[in-house]
Design a binder for these strands. Structure first.
Lengths: 132, 132
DNA sequence: ATAGCAATTTATACTATGTCTAATATTATA
DNA sequence: TATAATATTAGACATAGTATAAATTGCTAT
């Protein structure tokens, strides 16, 4: 709670109750929620918060560099509180998105791409989780 | 034209005029069009073809393995006539999606992912094209 | 050829994601 | 406190995609 407020303050974002609740909803999860999923979560605690405010807040957090968007699920942008580089694994059956640590994979050959200036990259994997 | 018809036939798809026009529109391009972009293209030649038919046909082609969908652009599924494994580069400025040959990059370390059975993967890069 | 059945196409309604706007409410500051 | 700047809200709007039911087309057997 305190932590969320200080994150907002340190990015020059006024920590209003709506914004605190929205930010907390995204940070308090390992899932990669869509905007409407965040809204649902916020409404459980603060039923009067409007959809537009949640969308505005999420976009604000992205623009200020607090969150990143990922285009990994059909027809939906999802929000990722981890802004450090990492890879993604998407479960074919459940659609769940899992973060894969950056160091787990090494990509070689980037220098052969003479035509492109690569700003960022990630490996996107699809498959299923192994049963333990 | 002949080629498109034989592709449809070899996948047990009746080559109706609407389906030929739709398939041709996807195959005749290096861009990665969305369903509505395909519809626009089809309508230029056959103005009476309905939106539902183009959507139905694209989904049919995907289910039969003729096309692949890629989730790379915000809020849109795009269709890729290249079903062989390859990577993608997305231009930050234009949103254009470029295919990157499979052999241009090598990904190592997959064996460290003990929890996942990876069915397919690709490297997704973002950045800008170098000016020649 | 044609009757009847299956496959296809069409228009339209519907759902979901996301944006925009104008009015209202809140906060900061002089 | 008065004023300006910022934030929130409800609702309208736009777009992507799906579902449905009626109409059309094509296939098959007589």
């Amino acid at each position: 709670m305190e932590k969320v407020i200080s994150i907002l303050r340190s990015h020059q974002i006024q920590p209003t109750p709506q914004r605190i609740a929205t930010a907390k909803a995204v940070f308090d999860t390992r899932t990669h929620p869509s905007a409407d999923e965040v809204w649902e979560k916020v409404k459980r605690d603060y039923p009067t918060v409007s959809r537009a405010t949640v969308y505005n807040t999420l976009n604000l957090l992205v623009n200020k560099g607090v969150l990143k968007t990922q285009i990994l699920r059909e027809g939906k942008v999802v929000f990722d509180p981890c802004i450090e580089p990492h890879h993604h694994f998407i479960d074919d059956e459940t659609g769940e998105i899992h973060d894969v640590p950056w160091d787990a994979l090494q990509v070689k050959g980037e220098d052969s791409l003479k035509d492109y200036k690569v700003r960022e990259y990630q490996v996107v994997m699809r498959g299923c989780k192994k049963k333990q």
